[in-house]
């Protein structure tokens, strides 16, 4: 897997170890391969190394040892700005990136940085706000919007860069139910358009309902990696990662059901 020839499609982390300058080891040998069109939720408690991992995907951080390749390109020796063409990254706090006086301009900033022609930028802006379902906000001033809506604007401004890989750091924080549903639909649309979506999240319902694969991290290591059903069938691993399974899975556990319950059908099937 690590012997990529430079034509490999996908993001490959090979035995990545990362130590912060203050000596804290945040990643202890992480190996993950993410292919085209995959939707991956990364979960785990604070301090498990999720954000550190995510920052490796677009070259904001470089591994202390091991390697990260994106479509065969080693991130070492690349700036984050140059990798931005491949990997979009939405930070947790939208206020760390919004600065334009109109949503449309804000969303256009990324594609413009990538040097796209004006008509392509315009098309991408329109496409991105449609994906995130915030077309009605285009003419607004970002700071007249609430925090949850600013977050959607920040997400659209990265989606507009049309990168094959998108990383979302805690997208559902502060969102209400309609906002969370919008994000769920966004993940599905991007995935079916062949883009790889990775989201760091604490929201297990969101992870279980909208992602095909869940990676559970604890203490700088991957401890579970698989489909929601596989991952949530391992209560002991989840406990070790201090991750609480989604509500229905917990309901199933309380009822003493052996199998993993993720929806109503599961429940009815195991009851009958």
């Amino acid at each position: 897997m690590s012997g990529g020839t430079g034509t490999q499609v996908g993001i490959v982390l090979d035995n990545v170890r990362y130590e912060y300058p203050n000596g804290v080891v945040a990643l202890r040998g992480v190996s993950i391969t993410m292919g085209k069109g995959e939707t991956v939720a990364i979960v785990g408690e604070n301090g498990a190394g999720k954000t550190t991992l995510a920052k490796h995907l677009n070259g904001l951080l470089k591994p202390t040892s091991g390697s990260v390749t994106v479509d065969g390109i080693d991130t070492r020796g690349r700036t984050a700005a140059s990798l931005a063409r491949l990997v979009g990254f939405v930070f947790q706090n939208p206020d760390d990136q919004l600065f334009q006086n109109q949503v449309s301009r804000e969303v256009a900033f990324g594609p413009r940085n990538l040097g796209y022609a004006a008509d392509r930028v315009e098309k991408l802006v329109r496409w991105a706000v449609e994906q995130v379902e915030i077309t009605d906000l285009l003419a607004r001033h970002p700071y007249d919007l609430g925090l949850a809506q600013r977050k959607l604007v920040a997400i659209a401004s990265v989606v507009a860069m049309d990168t094959p890989y998108i990383v979302l750091d805690e997208p559902t924080t502060g969102q209400d139910y309609p906002g969370t549903e919008k994000l769920g639909r966004l993940v599905a649309r991007l995935g079916s358009a062949g883009k790889t979506v990775m989201a760091i999240t604490h929201d297990m319902e969101f992870a279980a309902e909208h992602f095909a694969r869940i990676i559970v991290m604890a203490q700088g290591q991957v401890i579970l990696d698989g489909s929601p059903r596989e991952v949530f069938s391992h209560p002991s691993g989840l406990e070790r990662a201090s991750v609480e399974p989604p509500q229905l899975a917990r309901l199933g556990q309380l009822m003493g059901l052996g199998e993993c319950i993720l929806n109503e059908e599961d429940l009815l099937r195991s009851l009958c």
Binding site: K55, T79, A81, G110, N113, V158
Partner: peptide
């Protein structure tokens, strides 16, 4: 943090 966020949007700072 802002520097990181904007570099991730393709802003060249170097």
């Amino acid at each position: 943090a802002i520097l990181d966020a904007q570099r991730s949007r393709g802003l060249e700072t170097e």
